[in-house]
Simulated scan of single mutants.
Amino acid sequence: MNRETLKAWVQASRPPFFVATLIPLTAGAVLAHRQDSFEVLPFALVLVASFLVHFATNISNDYFDHMQGTDAGESIGGSRVLQEGKITLTELGKAIILLYTVAALIGFYLVWTLKLWAILPLMALAFFSSLFYVAPPVRYGYHGLGELFVAINMGPVMVMGSNWVLLGRVDWSALPVSLPIGLMVALILYYQSLPDMETDEAAGKRTLAVRLGKRGARTVLAVFWTSIYASIAALTLAGYFSPIAWCTLLTLPLLIKVWRLVVSIRNWVELDFHGKYIRIFYFINGLILIAALF
């Protein structure tokens, strides 16, 4: 593989978004560590399998959105490797199969060796959500359900799944902890859909933002932020997080900056240039919440 090919696959993987997988898995591991139940190898395998699924999800979105024509024309969605001719559709399809296969083998290895048969439905949900976000016949992302599934998978499924593998049993106390994490990842997806509202609607992709329209989309953005901070505050007061979690309030200036952009920019395509602020918001708050679990 030459350097240009490698760069193309890195572009397809969309590395800035991998933090969305790292934070919830680490939170689950920290919760297990608090009960003196942490082993490096199982956690490393969980990380590898989850990152492979995340990679597969990203390129599956590229593959099926391209087939649907959603990423054509003036659309700015996806990694653009297909539109720029850096990777062929056939190569992308083979990579999707390979990534899911390797991730499944790692998952089944953990289930077999740790006797975690009861976790199989959770794995099945993760696979279903990963592939059928834009893949037919389900394509739930085209029906305004993307944020809901992302919140569930990147919150409860990942936090509790990681914790379950390390503990060897379900710990329901991990569920509340996962909620603000899931909401923050859903916020990333939601914000990323704002610049593509017009092209998504034209292609028949009825995302939540498209269904709401600009005014409604702004309102739901504020609801997301309020829900995130409210859940963190409630969980801190309830003792799930240590007082360190109050440091998440330090990220308010980031949201104020984004809000001003959303209100002032007339052409929302330009919001794509500012998505880094939402990812930074998530990364900083994720690290604070992990620290608040120790």
Score class of each variant (00 low, 15 high):
S75D: 12
A56R: 03
G93D: 08
V53I: 12
R80G: 05
I59S: 11
N61R: 11
Y100Q: 09
G85H: 00
L99K: 06
H54A: 11
V81R: 07
G93A: 08
L92G: 07
D65R: 12
E74N: 15
Y63F: 13
G69P: 13
G69E: 06
I87S: 05
F64C: 07
V81C: 01
G77C: 10
L92N: 11
A72K: 11
I97L: 07
N58R: 01
T90P: 01
H66C: 05
L98F: 04
D71A: 12
Y63M: 03
L92H: 02
G69F: 03
E91T: 08
I96L: 00
S75Q: 12
F55P: 05
G78W: 01
L89W: 07
Y100W: 03
I96R: 06
I76D: 11
Y100A: 10
R80K: 15
D62V: 14
T90G: 07
D62Q: 13
I96A: 03
Q68R: 15
E84T: 09
A72T: 11
I76E: 15
T88D: 09
S75C: 14
E91W: 00
D71P: 14
D65L: 06
D71M: 07
Y63K: 09
D62T: 13
Q83A: 15
M67N: 14
S60D: 04
T88H: 08
G85R: 02
Q83G: 14
N58E: 10
H54L: 07
Q83N: 10
L98T: 03
T57D: 13
V81H: 01
Y100F: 10
Q68S: 15
G69R: 12
F64W: 15
Q68L: 12
N58T: 07
G77H: 07
G78F: 00
T88N: 01
N61Y: 07
I96V: 10
V81D: 06
H66D: 15
E74F: 03
G78M: 06
T90N: 10
N61A: 09
D62Y: 06
S79K: 02
S60V: 11
F55W: 08
H66V: 00
A95W: 00
N58A: 08
Q68A: 15
G77V: 09
L82M: 08
F64N: 12
E91S: 15
A72E: 13
L92V: 11
D62R: 14
G69C: 07
D62A: 13
E91C: 00
V81T: 13
G85V: 00
F55T: 13
L82Y: 05
D62G: 14
F64T: 14
I87M: 04
M67S: 15
T88Y: 01
T57A: 15
G77Y: 05
L89H: 14
K86Y: 03
E91V: 03
V53H: 06
R80C: 04
I96H: 02
D71N: 11
L89M: 08
F64E: 09
D71H: 05
I96W: 00
